[in-house]
Every structure is written in structure tokens, then in C-alpha cells.
């Protein structure tokens, strides 16, 4: 268990470092998928396979692929190299990282972990679904949050279509006679 934890932690940290240090945007995106996979491995170790599967599905399978897709669509190969990206915002980045690290350490410190146990709590997939839909007692707020996020995504999708749509008369679409 300790060996697996050490391996996963090393994988997450090394990949995360690779994301920041690497000079090629595509390399950064691929390192990021390695980091996400390591986090999925942590979920497996915590006895929450459903979370691990969703982590892989959403972050590795969708987010990274869409990011790579975007990189390849928007940039020419010559511009994919950022030589000075490490130097540009060094201090600001350090402050943000230190702040997040301090906050997480504080939460880790004040929380009482003696009763926590891997695999307990609302991690079973059926229970998780009920909580998401707000049917089980005490979780009604989640239904509202879930719907708000859905509406937000819908707005984003419609906006993307409106932004990327060609105006009538400017440019001929493939196979469409104007």
C-alpha cells in the first residue's frame, strides 16, 4: 500500500512539475493527463472506483483531449514553443502556489481525521446518484447546484455556437449555396 502510494504521489508530482517546466504546450498537456491518472489511482486506493472512473472519463478522456484539440487548431507548429514561460510570472505564480499550499495544510491540520476511513460515506455509486439528484435527506441543495451547473453549460454551448457561426453572406460554407 505504501509502495503504491509512493509511486502514485511521485507520478502526480513529477507530472505536475513537467506541466510547468516543459517548454512545449503539447508536452504540458500530456504531462497533465499523467497527473490526472495518478489522482485517479489515489481514488482507487481510497476504495472509490466510481470517482476514479469519472476522473479518468472527464479529465483524461475529455478535458485533456479538448485542450490538445484546441492547441492544434489554434496554433501553428512554430509558435508551440514557449521559451520564456518560466520566467514571465515567476513571483506571482509562487505567491499563488504558496497560498494554496498554506490553505490546504491548514485544512489538513485543523480537521480531525481519527474517524475517517477509506471506502465509507456517500461514495457508493447509488448513494452518490441520489445525493446528486437531491432525493436523499439532507442533500436537497445538491439538486439545485446540479441544475445551475447544467444551465451554465447550456448557456456556454449556445454562446459557442453563436460566436463560431458564420454570418450569412460572409464566406461560403462547404456544400451550402448561399
Amino acid at each position: 500500500m505504501t509502495i503504491a502510494f509512493g509511486f502514485l504521489a511521485g507520478m502526480v508530482l513529477v507530472s505536475a512539475l513537467g506541466v510547468v517546466v516543459s517548454r512545449n504546450v503539447v508536452h504540458s498537456a500530456l504531462f497533465m493527463s499523467g497527473s490526472f491518472l495518478g489522482v485517479a489511482g489515489f481514488f482507487v486506493m481510497l476504495n472509490a472506483p466510481s470517482l476514479a472512473a469519472f476522473q479518468v472519463l472527464i479529465y483524461v478522456g475529455a478535458v485533456t483531449v479538448v485542450i490538445l484539440f484546441g492547441i492544434m487548431f489554434t496554433q501553428r507548429p512554430q509558435v508551440r514553443h514557449y521559451r520564456t514561460i518560466i520566467n514571465r510570472q515567476f513571483w506571482a505564480g509562487l505567491c499563488v502556489a504558496a497560498g494554496v499550499g498554506a490553505f490546504l495544510s491548514y485544512v489538513l491540520w485543523i480537521e480531525d481525521w481519527s474517524s475517517a476511513q477509506a471506502g465509507n460515506g456517500p461514495r457508493e455509486v447509488a448513494q452518490l446518484g441520489r445525493d446528486m439528484l437531491g432525493v436523499s435527506p439532507g442533500s436537497e441543495i445538491f439538486a439545485l447546484l446540479f441544475q445551475v451547473v447544467s444551465v451554465l453549460l447550456l448557456v456556454a454551448i449556445v454562446a459557442a455556437i453563436v460566436v463560431s457561426r458564420r454570418k450569412v453572406g460572409t464566406g461560403v460554407d462547404r456544400g451550402v449555396e448561399e
Binding site: 500530456l30 493527463s33 472506483p49 466510481s50 472512473a53 469519472f54 479518468v56 472519463l57 483524461v60 478522456g61 475529455a62 485533456t64 483531449v65 490538445l68 484539440f69 492544434m72 457508493e124 455509486v125
Partner: peptide, 22 residues
């Protein structure tokens, strides 16, 4: 016999696109 076998299938199929891009 994962209790989320179907999700596991979908998740790992979605990685295939990553290999393709690589």
C-alpha cells in the same frame, strides 16, 4: 467485478483518443 464496470469501460475508451493525438 467492479460495481461501476460500465463507467470503467467508457472511461478507458475515452483515453483512446489521447493515444491517437499522440
Amino acid at each position: 467485478d467492479l460495481n461501476v464496470g460500465v463507467v470503467f469501460f467508457i472511461a478507458l475508451t475515452s483515453i483512446g483518443a489521447l493515444g491517437l493525438i499522440m
